[in-house]
Design a protein around this nucleic acid. Structure first.
Lengths: 252, 252
DNA sequence: ATTATACTATTTGTAAGACAAATAGATGTC
DNA sequence: GACATCTATTTGTCTTACAAATAGTATAAT
């Protein structure tokens, strides 16, 4: 077994209930466990002690431990499996999941009006420059193939609005991927996701896919030609288009 | 009462246990509640039904509901208060908290080696261009004052390494703030946070603050002069410096 | 009448114990 | 030896109960 709590007590055996802390037990435990994970006392793939053990060690009840674990699960830090050899495992947070929670936060801000659409479109403009330059430099044939696939999917007139928007996201994601930088990818996914509501609105209200497709084709061609300036221009045209249609649609 | 579930049933009265879904009940409930919040069926400040009510409506036990609520609490979506007039409330997610969980995710990725430092420095380079241009355009005297404050704090030789790094973050945040775009701010905060480990390492290992301070002063001056090109150059010098020192420190 | 105090009801926080469900490993049977 | 079964372990869920916080209300004292 890999838990030698006796020799290296990674957790206090009890919570000092007379201390000033007023936050809930489950929150405290979640924080302690999170620290233990982030600081490497539990590595990826490690199994945490069983819920019963944790409860005993912290001197709390199992439901409390479970609430703590659910907090961590919500952050994609742990995952549970049942059965013997089961338990709560530290998981490798994947891009997709993290980007997912990121964009979740972003859509939340959008939905609650803390971020407005114009601002997001602007942000896209601000951030894309260097991104597209890098895409032009680093795009491999595989990257370009991915972009092409997404575009082809968009060109199929049979697909529903929803699928069209999915393909739209896939197109822009693939474009960002070709910049070949994980952090940029991580960050730009957020912006892309935040723009989904706009695309959605335009596709369903304006009911005109060809403009978007045409601009995407333009962008793809410029990428293939390795022309960053023109690529940036086309992207800006797309953003102008989105902005225009969005303002048209929202003032009615 | 503000919940007319009879007329507008925002939630299914029961979970179909024979369905294909294999994820845990608490997860499903968390998702349904999250949807209800994001889609606006619960607005900011609204009180959710009591845990007992939720349990009854979903046909599950209170612990399950609580686990779901803890998941949402971990995402800073709800907050609980006790007593009559208490309950679980939808909270306005603040930039700080969201950026906090974002950077938490980022530092997690860094700590686990999923993102490497060189990549992050590069990302900063890629994304900053447009950002600094906008900062030059939109920086108000208030913005500049904030930056200056952070810089002055860094120049105080009395402060600890930790405080120095905090001031460093404050400096870069203030710089990004002056671009005056919420989405950019949101996104760049993440990158800034992800760079903390580097600064930390350099400050504690290289033990040389003056280089950083000098470059920061340079940047501030270029911002005041509204010279985007030079500002960008200085920032790149800073990144070069960070990269150089980092590689030096890590190859030992 | 007003203020202070105590009480009560409501709601989340925590605990304990039980059973269900999944599952890996051991065991037994053919 | 292959297959089925049994068992033990661990998370998933339910039930019930009580503790703690807190707003409102009633009561008592001034």
């Amino acid at each position: 077994m890999s838990f030698k709590v006796q020799t290296t007590p990674f957790l206090k055996t009890n919570i000092d209930k007379s201390s000033i802390v007023k936050s809930s037990i489950s929150k405290q435990i979640a924080e302690q466990l999170r620290d233990a994970i982030v600081s490497g006392r539990f590595k990826i793939g490690d199994r945490l002690p069983t819920e019963d053990e944790l409860a005993q060690r912290y001197g709390v009840s199992r439901p409390s431990v479970r609430e703590a674990l659910k907090r961590l699960a919500a952050q994609n830090l742990v995952r549970a499996r049942r059965g013997p050899s089961g338990g709560n495992f530290v998981v490798q947070p994947s891009y997709e999941e993290l980007a997912g929670s990121l964009s979740g936060a972003a859509t939340l801000l959008v939905g609650m009006g803390a971020l407005d659409i114009v601002e997001i479109i602007d942000a896209r403009r601000i951030l894309q420059g260097g991104c597209l330059e890098h895409a032009v430099k680093n795009a491999t044939t595989a990257h370009i193939a991915d972009i092409k696939t997404a575009l082809e999917r968009q060109k199929n007139p049979e697909i529903s609005d929803e699928v069209f928007c999915q393909a739209d996201v896939a197109f822009h994601r693939a474009l960002v991927d070709s910049a070949d930088n994980g952090m940029v990818r991580f960050v730009m996914y957020t912006v892309i996701e935040a723009l989904i509501p706009v695309t959605n609105m335009i596709v369903t209200v304006v009911r005109e896919r060809s403009d978007i497709i045409r601009l995407h084709e333009e962008m793809l061609q410029h990428l293939i030609d390795r022309n960053a300036t023109l690529l940036n221009q086309s992207m800006n045209k797309l953003l102008d288009y989105l902005l225009e249609k969005f303002e048209l649609a929202s003032q009615r």
